[in-house]
Protein backbone atom coordinates (compact mmCIF):
# COMPACT_ATOMS: atom_id res chain seq x y z
CA UNK A 1 0.00 0.00 0.00
CA UNK A 2 1.27 3.44 -0.77
CA UNK A 3 0.38 6.96 -1.76
CA UNK A 4 0.90 8.02 -5.34
CA UNK A 5 1.56 11.53 -6.61
CA UNK A 6 1.59 12.58 -10.25
CA UNK A 7 4.51 14.96 -10.67
CA UNK A 8 4.39 17.34 -13.63
CA UNK A 9 7.38 18.94 -15.24
CA UNK A 10 7.91 21.70 -17.70
CA UNK A 11 11.05 22.43 -19.73
CA UNK A 12 13.02 19.75 -17.96
CA UNK A 13 12.18 20.91 -14.44
CA UNK A 14 9.60 19.75 -11.96
CA UNK A 15 6.83 22.25 -11.49
CA UNK A 16 6.43 23.88 -8.13
CA UNK A 17 3.14 22.01 -7.75
CA UNK A 18 5.02 18.69 -7.98
CA UNK A 19 7.10 19.64 -4.95
CA UNK A 20 4.00 20.78 -3.11
CA UNK A 21 2.34 17.42 -3.80
CA UNK A 22 5.43 15.63 -2.53
CA UNK A 23 5.42 17.70 0.67
CA UNK A 24 1.71 17.12 1.23
CA UNK A 25 1.91 13.43 0.33
CA UNK A 26 4.90 12.98 2.68
CA UNK A 27 2.91 14.23 5.64
CA UNK A 28 0.01 11.85 4.97
CA UNK A 29 2.40 8.96 4.26
CA UNK A 30 4.00 9.52 7.67
CA UNK A 31 0.61 9.53 9.37
CA UNK A 32 -0.25 6.24 7.72
CA UNK A 33 3.22 4.73 7.83
CA UNK A 34 3.21 3.99 4.10
CA UNK A 35 5.49 4.66 1.15
CA UNK A 36 5.28 7.82 -0.98
CA UNK A 37 5.57 6.99 -4.67
CA UNK A 38 5.82 9.51 -7.51
CA UNK A 39 5.17 9.00 -11.19
CA UNK A 40 6.91 11.19 -13.73
CA UNK A 41 6.56 11.16 -17.48
CA UNK A 42 9.45 11.79 -19.87
CA UNK A 43 11.46 13.45 -17.13
CA UNK A 44 14.13 11.92 -14.93
CA UNK A 45 15.29 13.76 -11.85
CA UNK A 46 14.84 11.62 -8.78
CA UNK A 47 17.13 13.73 -6.60
CA UNK A 48 14.82 16.73 -6.47
CA UNK A 49 11.82 14.61 -5.49
CA UNK A 50 13.88 12.89 -2.80
CA UNK A 51 14.44 16.24 -1.11
CA UNK A 52 10.71 16.63 -0.62
CA UNK A 53 10.04 13.20 0.78
CA UNK A 54 9.44 10.87 -2.15
CA UNK A 55 10.85 7.36 -1.55
CA UNK A 56 10.29 5.83 -4.95
CA UNK A 57 9.82 7.42 -8.34
CA UNK A 58 8.44 5.49 -11.25
CA UNK A 59 9.69 7.03 -14.47
CA UNK A 60 7.81 6.37 -17.67
CA UNK A 61 9.46 7.64 -20.82
CA UNK A 62 8.06 7.15 -24.28
CA UNK A 63 7.74 9.26 -27.43
CA UNK A 64 3.96 8.71 -27.36
CA UNK A 65 3.84 10.64 -24.08
CA UNK A 66 5.74 13.64 -25.35
CA UNK A 67 2.66 15.82 -25.54
CA UNK A 68 0.23 15.56 -22.66
CA UNK A 69 -2.95 13.74 -23.65
CA UNK A 70 -5.39 12.87 -20.91
CA UNK A 71 -6.39 9.31 -21.77
CA UNK A 72 -2.91 7.80 -22.20
CA UNK A 73 -1.60 9.64 -19.15
CA UNK A 74 -4.56 8.49 -17.07
CA UNK A 75 -4.12 4.91 -18.30
CA UNK A 76 -0.46 4.92 -17.27
CA UNK A 77 -1.19 6.36 -13.85
CA UNK A 78 -3.96 3.80 -13.35
CA UNK A 79 -1.57 0.98 -14.26
CA UNK A 80 0.98 2.15 -11.68
CA UNK A 81 -1.71 2.57 -9.03
CA UNK A 82 -3.02 -0.94 -9.59
CA UNK A 83 0.38 -2.61 -9.67
CA UNK A 84 1.40 -0.95 -6.42
CA UNK A 85 -1.85 -1.39 -4.53
CA UNK A 86 -2.21 2.39 -4.17
CA UNK A 87 -5.25 3.55 -2.17
CA UNK A 88 -4.70 7.29 -2.33
CA UNK A 89 -3.63 9.33 -5.35
CA UNK A 90 -2.81 13.01 -5.12
CA UNK A 91 -2.87 15.31 -8.12
CA UNK A 92 -2.32 19.04 -8.55
CA UNK A 93 -4.85 21.60 -9.76
CA UNK A 94 -3.12 22.25 -13.07
CA UNK A 95 -5.23 22.27 -16.22
CA UNK A 96 -3.74 18.91 -17.20
CA UNK A 97 -4.25 17.28 -13.81
CA UNK A 98 -7.87 18.42 -13.71
CA UNK A 99 -8.28 17.04 -17.22
CA UNK A 100 -7.16 13.54 -16.37
CA UNK A 101 -8.45 13.19 -12.79
CA UNK A 102 -12.08 12.30 -13.69
CA UNK A 103 -10.84 9.73 -16.22
CA UNK A 104 -8.58 8.21 -13.61
CA UNK A 105 -11.40 8.18 -11.06
CA UNK A 106 -13.66 6.18 -13.37
CA UNK A 107 -10.97 3.74 -14.39
CA UNK A 108 -9.95 3.03 -10.78
CA UNK A 109 -13.53 3.25 -9.58
CA UNK A 110 -12.19 5.80 -7.11
CA UNK A 111 -13.74 8.68 -5.23
CA UNK A 112 -12.45 12.10 -6.25
CA UNK A 113 -12.38 15.41 -4.42
CA UNK A 114 -10.99 18.39 -6.34
CA UNK A 115 -9.89 21.78 -4.97
CA UNK A 116 -8.81 20.34 -1.62
CA UNK A 117 -7.31 23.10 0.51
CA UNK A 118 -5.66 21.39 3.47
CA UNK A 119 -4.48 18.11 4.98
CA UNK A 120 -7.26 15.55 5.45
CA UNK A 121 -9.17 16.05 8.66
CA UNK A 122 -9.46 12.27 9.03
CA UNK A 123 -7.82 9.50 7.08
CA UNK A 124 -10.47 6.92 7.93
CA UNK A 125 -12.91 7.60 6.42
CA UNK A 126 -11.03 10.06 4.24
CA UNK A 127 -12.42 13.49 5.12
CA UNK A 128 -11.19 16.56 3.28
CA UNK A 129 -12.00 20.24 3.13
CA UNK A 130 -12.51 21.57 -0.40
CA UNK A 131 -13.51 24.93 -1.72
CA UNK A 132 -16.88 25.28 -3.38
CA UNK A 133 -19.23 28.05 -4.55
CA UNK A 134 -16.17 29.46 -6.33
CA UNK A 135 -14.27 30.12 -3.13
CA UNK A 136 -17.25 31.68 -1.40
CA UNK A 137 -17.40 28.63 0.91
CA UNK A 138 -15.81 25.33 1.88
CA UNK A 139 -17.32 21.90 2.22
CA UNK A 140 -16.19 18.95 4.27
CA UNK A 141 -16.30 15.99 1.97
CA UNK A 142 -16.22 12.33 2.98
CA UNK A 143 -14.86 9.72 0.60
CA UNK A 144 -15.64 6.18 1.67
CA UNK A 145 -14.08 4.20 -1.13
CA UNK A 146 -11.36 1.60 -1.49
CA UNK A 147 -9.37 4.03 -3.65
CA UNK A 148 -9.57 7.83 -3.53
CA UNK A 149 -8.11 10.76 -5.42
CA UNK A 150 -7.34 14.17 -3.97
CA UNK A 151 -6.88 17.18 -6.26
CA UNK A 152 -4.85 19.65 -4.19
CA UNK A 153 -5.50 23.33 -4.71
CA UNK A 154 -2.25 25.08 -5.62
CA UNK A 155 -0.33 26.98 -2.95
CA UNK A 156 -2.59 25.58 -0.24
CA UNK A 157 0.02 23.50 1.58
CA UNK A 158 3.37 24.93 0.55
CA UNK A 159 6.69 23.27 -0.10
CA UNK A 160 8.53 21.56 2.75
CA UNK A 161 11.90 19.90 2.52
CA UNK A 162 12.19 16.43 4.03
CA UNK A 163 14.97 14.43 2.44
CA UNK A 164 14.48 10.71 1.89
CA UNK A 165 16.56 8.03 0.27
CA UNK A 166 14.92 7.72 -3.12
CA UNK A 167 14.84 4.81 -5.55
CA UNK A 168 14.20 5.47 -9.24
CA UNK A 169 12.54 2.76 -11.30
CA UNK A 170 11.99 2.85 -15.04
CA UNK A 171 8.71 1.48 -16.25
CA UNK A 172 7.70 0.85 -19.81
CA UNK A 173 4.70 2.62 -21.19
CA UNK A 174 1.22 1.12 -20.97
CA UNK A 175 0.00 1.72 -24.52
CA UNK A 176 -3.38 3.29 -24.91
CA UNK A 177 -5.09 3.62 -28.27
CA UNK A 178 -6.34 7.10 -28.98
CA UNK A 179 -7.70 8.86 -32.03
CA UNK A 180 -7.33 12.25 -30.39
CA UNK A 181 -4.35 14.17 -31.74
CA UNK A 182 -2.78 17.33 -30.37
CA UNK A 183 -1.93 19.18 -33.57
CA UNK A 184 -0.38 22.29 -32.19
CA UNK A 185 0.51 24.00 -28.92
CA UNK A 186 0.62 27.74 -28.88
CA UNK A 187 2.53 28.93 -25.81
CA UNK A 188 2.16 32.48 -24.65
CA UNK A 189 5.92 32.84 -24.76
CA UNK A 190 8.11 33.65 -21.84
CA UNK A 191 5.37 34.77 -19.49
CA UNK A 192 4.52 33.30 -16.13
CA UNK A 193 1.15 31.53 -16.23
CA UNK A 194 -1.50 32.48 -13.68
CA UNK A 195 -1.71 28.88 -12.50
CA UNK A 196 1.98 28.65 -11.65
CA UNK A 197 2.57 32.18 -10.39
CA UNK A 198 3.55 33.19 -6.85
CA UNK A 199 2.47 36.73 -7.59
CA UNK A 200 -0.30 37.92 -9.90
CA UNK A 201 -0.71 41.55 -10.99
CA UNK A 202 -4.16 42.34 -12.24
CA UNK A 203 -5.65 45.37 -13.96
CA UNK A 204 -9.25 46.51 -14.23
CA UNK A 205 -11.26 49.02 -16.18
CA UNK A 206 -9.64 51.77 -14.10
CA UNK A 207 -6.63 51.54 -16.42
CA UNK A 208 -8.73 53.16 -19.12
CA UNK A 209 -7.40 51.29 -22.14
CA UNK A 210 -5.04 48.62 -23.48
CA UNK A 211 -2.44 51.29 -24.29
CA UNK A 212 -1.82 51.67 -20.56
CA UNK A 213 -1.12 48.01 -19.88
CA UNK A 214 2.63 48.58 -19.89
CA UNK A 215 2.06 49.66 -16.26
CA UNK A 216 0.71 46.22 -15.36
CA UNK A 217 3.30 44.43 -17.45
CA UNK A 218 6.24 46.38 -16.07
CA UNK A 219 5.11 45.86 -12.51
CA UNK A 220 4.58 42.16 -13.19
CA UNK A 221 7.99 41.69 -14.74
CA UNK A 222 9.65 43.55 -11.86
CA UNK A 223 7.96 41.14 -9.45
CA UNK A 224 8.34 38.03 -11.63
CA UNK A 225 4.55 37.90 -11.63
CA UNK A 226 1.82 36.76 -14.02
CA UNK A 227 -0.58 39.32 -15.46
CA UNK A 228 -4.36 39.09 -15.09
CA UNK A 229 -7.43 41.25 -15.64
CA UNK A 230 -11.07 41.69 -14.72
CA UNK A 231 -13.83 40.32 -16.93
CA UNK A 232 -14.87 43.55 -18.69
CA UNK A 233 -11.25 44.13 -19.64
CA UNK A 234 -11.10 40.81 -21.49
CA UNK A 235 -14.63 41.20 -22.86
CA UNK A 236 -13.63 44.50 -24.44
CA UNK A 237 -10.61 42.82 -25.96
CA UNK A 238 -8.07 44.93 -24.09
CA UNK A 239 -6.48 41.72 -22.88
CA UNK A 240 -6.70 38.04 -23.90
CA UNK A 241 -9.36 35.82 -22.33
CA UNK A 242 -6.69 33.71 -20.72
CA UNK A 243 -6.10 36.60 -18.30
CA UNK A 244 -9.70 36.91 -17.12
CA UNK A 245 -9.84 35.93 -13.47
CA UNK A 246 -12.82 35.56 -11.18
CA UNK A 247 -15.85 33.40 -10.74
CA UNK A 248 -16.33 32.85 -14.46
CA UNK A 249 -12.65 33.11 -15.35
CA UNK A 250 -9.56 31.57 -13.86
CA UNK A 251 -9.15 31.08 -10.15
CA UNK A 252 -6.11 32.69 -8.55
CA UNK A 253 -4.39 31.14 -5.54
CA UNK A 254 -1.15 33.11 -5.50
CA UNK A 255 0.79 34.30 -2.48
CA UNK A 256 0.32 37.93 -3.50
CA UNK A 257 -2.47 39.36 -5.65
CA UNK A 258 -2.12 42.98 -6.72
CA UNK A 259 -5.31 44.57 -8.06
CA UNK A 260 -5.04 47.90 -9.83
CA UNK A 261 -8.13 49.79 -10.95
CA UNK A 262 -10.37 46.83 -10.15
CA UNK A 263 -13.53 47.69 -8.18
CA UNK A 264 -13.85 44.34 -6.38
CA UNK A 265 -17.20 43.04 -7.60
CA UNK A 266 -18.42 39.89 -5.87
CA UNK A 267 -17.72 37.78 -8.98
CA UNK A 268 -14.18 39.06 -9.16
CA UNK A 269 -13.51 38.50 -5.47
CA UNK A 270 -14.86 34.96 -5.63
CA UNK A 271 -12.13 33.93 -7.99
CA UNK A 272 -9.20 35.51 -6.20
CA UNK A 273 -10.26 34.90 -2.60
CA UNK A 274 -7.84 32.10 -2.02
CA UNK A 275 -4.84 34.31 -2.71
CA UNK A 276 -3.01 34.76 0.56
CA UNK A 277 -2.23 38.49 0.51
CA UNK A 278 -4.11 41.10 -1.48
CA UNK A 279 -2.81 44.57 -2.31
CA UNK A 280 -5.37 46.94 -3.80
CA UNK A 281 -4.62 50.20 -5.59
CA UNK A 282 -7.67 52.27 -6.43
CA UNK A 283 -8.38 56.00 -6.56
CA UNK A 284 -11.79 55.56 -4.95
CA UNK A 285 -11.54 55.08 -1.17
CA UNK A 286 -15.04 53.56 -1.26
CA UNK A 287 -14.10 50.82 -3.75
CA UNK A 288 -15.49 47.55 -2.35
CA UNK A 289 -12.18 45.80 -2.97
CA UNK A 290 -10.61 47.54 0.04
CA UNK A 291 -12.88 45.50 2.32
CA UNK A 292 -11.34 42.32 0.95
CA UNK A 293 -7.76 43.62 0.89
CA UNK A 294 -4.82 43.17 3.25
CA UNK A 295 -3.02 46.29 2.05
CA UNK A 296 -4.60 49.24 0.31
CA UNK A 297 -3.39 52.40 -1.36
CA UNK A 298 -5.84 55.09 -2.38
CA UNK A 299 -4.19 56.67 -5.39
CA UNK A 300 -4.32 57.29 -9.08
CA UNK A 301 -2.78 54.23 -10.70
CA UNK A 302 -1.09 56.37 -13.33
CA UNK A 303 0.85 58.17 -10.63
CA UNK A 304 1.54 55.47 -8.09
CA UNK A 305 2.33 52.44 -10.25
CA UNK A 306 5.39 53.99 -11.98
CA UNK A 307 6.71 54.95 -8.54
CA UNK A 308 6.07 51.47 -7.22
CA UNK A 309 7.96 49.96 -10.14
CA UNK A 310 10.94 52.29 -9.63
CA UNK A 311 11.12 51.63 -5.90
CA UNK A 312 10.73 47.89 -6.33
CA UNK A 313 13.61 47.87 -8.77
CA UNK A 314 15.76 49.62 -6.22
CA UNK A 315 14.59 47.19 -3.53
CA UNK A 316 15.35 44.17 -5.71
CA UNK A 317 18.84 45.42 -6.47
CA UNK A 318 19.70 46.22 -2.89
Amino acid sequence: MGILIYTESDNGKFKKSALELASYGRTIADQLGVELIAVSFNHKDSQTLGHYGVERVIQISDPSLENFTAKPYAANLAAVAEENDVKLLILSSSANAKYLAPLLAVSLSAGYASNVVELPEYIQPLTVKRSCFTNKAFSTCILENEVNIIGLSSNSYGIRENTKEIVAVDKSVTPRETNLVVENIEKSSGEVSIADADIVVSGGRGLKGPENWHLIEDLASTLGAATACSKPVSDMGWRPHSEHVGQTGKPVASNLYVAIGVSGAIQHLAGINSSKVKLVINNDPEAPFFKAADYGVVADAFEVVPQLIEKLKIFKNS
Partner: peptide
Amino acid sequence: KSSISKFEKPAPKGEVKMVD
Protein backbone atom coordinates in the same frame (compact mmCIF):
# COMPACT_ATOMS: atom_id res chain seq x y z
CA LYS B 1 -18.69 8.14 -4.06
CA SER B 2 -18.61 11.15 -1.81
CA SER B 3 -20.84 13.00 0.60
CA ILE B 4 -20.78 16.41 2.21
CA SER B 5 -20.97 16.51 5.99
CA LYS B 6 -20.90 20.26 6.40
CA PHE B 7 -20.30 23.64 4.80
CA GLU B 8 -18.50 26.63 6.20
CA LYS B 9 -17.71 30.15 5.10
CA PRO B 10 -14.20 31.57 4.98
CA ALA B 11 -13.03 33.11 8.25
CA PRO B 12 -13.71 36.84 8.37
CA LYS B 13 -10.78 38.85 7.12
CA GLY B 14 -8.66 41.10 9.28
CA GLU B 15 -8.70 44.86 8.81
CA VAL B 16 -7.09 46.26 5.70
CA LYS B 17 -3.90 48.22 6.29
CA MET B 18 -4.01 51.47 4.34
CA VAL B 19 -0.73 52.92 3.19
CA ASP B 20 -0.33 56.52 2.14
